[in-house]
Amino acid sequence: MKKTLFILITILFSIAMYGCSSSGDTDNAGDTGSEDKPTLTFGVTNWTSTVPPTKIAGKILENMGYKVEETNADAGSVYTGMSNGDIDIFMDSWFPAQRQYIEEYSDSIESIGVSYDNANSGMVVPKYMEDINDVSDLKGNEDLVNNEMFAIGAGDPAMQDMKKVIDFYNLDIEMTNSSEAAMLAAAEAEMEEENPVLFYGWRPHSMFDKYDLKILTNKEATEEKGLFDASTINVIANKGLEEKAPEAFQFLSNWSISMEDMEQMIAEIDGGANPDEVAQEWIDNNQDKIEEMKNGN
């Protein structure tokens, strides 16, 4: 009887140990699968043009097996974060306006792809200001806009170029710097009354979908100073990305999106659409393009 009991206990103990071993193997296999690819962190500014490409690229990378996080910060902090490795990717770097950051952190960050080009920016007025078409037309007419230009944050590199343009033409205009949202709210309040107004603008942006606007030409200063030429929007990454996530690096190196698609998505999001849903719709409609970007074709 004792022998039989001993045998039963031994069998039960063996079964229990096997069960624990099998359960442990299953858990380890799951952990291994989830840890195959690293977490990638995107820098996200408060510019409307940053959201669509970040959401789209993030969703695609998640489908490729990466974990994705977002860090919200101003442009300077995003570049600093990339330089020290806290941020891996920034989808909305404007050249040449933000060239100073690339030069400053050239040892640790690099441009790896181009989203789109021919994105223009500069001084913007509503089209009903028919006599103001070039920056030079503001000279002597600064009082039309109360000697004020609504602008984005003073720390943005584009504002340094804007200051150079104001100085170049010796305009009696002061910039009122604030967030993008506050700048647009101030400009829109004037346009609702059809008052003359001067503010900073860029494409792609939903402001051009909502209002009849024009970016003032800047012929004289552009020729002599190279200011406000059309911009190229680049994907910037920490130089360790290729080693850290080679498949992600290849995908982002082939990344591209049209300005028309960008403006449509920005307008939808500004109109209240969910950014994740807008991004997913673009993904659903561009599967062939996505495969080309993944495979490097």
Rank of each mutant, 00 (worst) to 15 (best):
L5P: 05
F6M: 02
I7W: 07
T10L: 15
L12Q: 08
F13C: 07
F13P: 01
I15Q: 07
A16C: 12
A16F: 15
M17L: 11
Y18F: 12
S22Y: 12
S23I: 02
T26G: 01
D27M: 07
A29L: 03
D31K: 06
T32K: 13
E35H: 10
D36N: 13
D36R: 11
D36S: 15
T41Q: 03
F42E: 03
V44L: 14
T45Q: 03
N46T: 13
T50N: 07
P52V: 04
P53D: 14
T54R: 11
K55Q: 15
G58N: 13
E62K: 13
K67I: 00
A75V: 09
D86T: 11
I87V: 06
D88Y: 06
I89H: 02
R99F: 05
Y101R: 01
I102S: 04
E103P: 00
E103M: 01
Y105K: 00
Y105L: 01
G113L: 04
G113Y: 06
V114S: 11
V114M: 13
V114E: 12
Y116V: 10
D117F: 15
N118G: 07
A119V: 02
G122K: 02
G122V: 13
V124L: 09
V124K: 03
K127C: 04
Y128E: 02
Y128Q: 01
Y128F: 14
S136A: 11
D137S: 02
N141C: 00
D143K: 07
E148V: 14
M149L: 05
G153D: 13
G155N: 10
M159N: 14
M159A: 07
Q160R: 11
Q160H: 15
K163E: 15
F168V: 00
Y169V: 00
N170G: 02
N170Y: 00
I173G: 09
E174S: 14
T176M: 11
S179T: 15
E180N: 08
A182L: 12
M183E: 13
E194N: 10
N195Q: 13
F199C: 00
Y200L: 05
G201A: 06
W202Y: 14
R203F: 01
S206P: 11
F208Y: 15
K210G: 10
K214R: 12
E220R: 08
A221M: 04
E224L: 15
G226D: 10
L227S: 07
D229E: 06
S231T: 08
S231C: 05
T232P: 01
N234G: 03
K239I: 10
G240E: 14
E243S: 12
Q250N: 11
F251A: 00
L252I: 08
S256A: 12
E260G: 12
Q264N: 11
I266D: 07
I269H: 09
D270Y: 14
G272T: 10
D276F: 11
A279K: 03
Q280P: 09
Q280A: 05
D284T: 01
N286D: 11
I290C: 06
E291R: 05
G296Y: 07
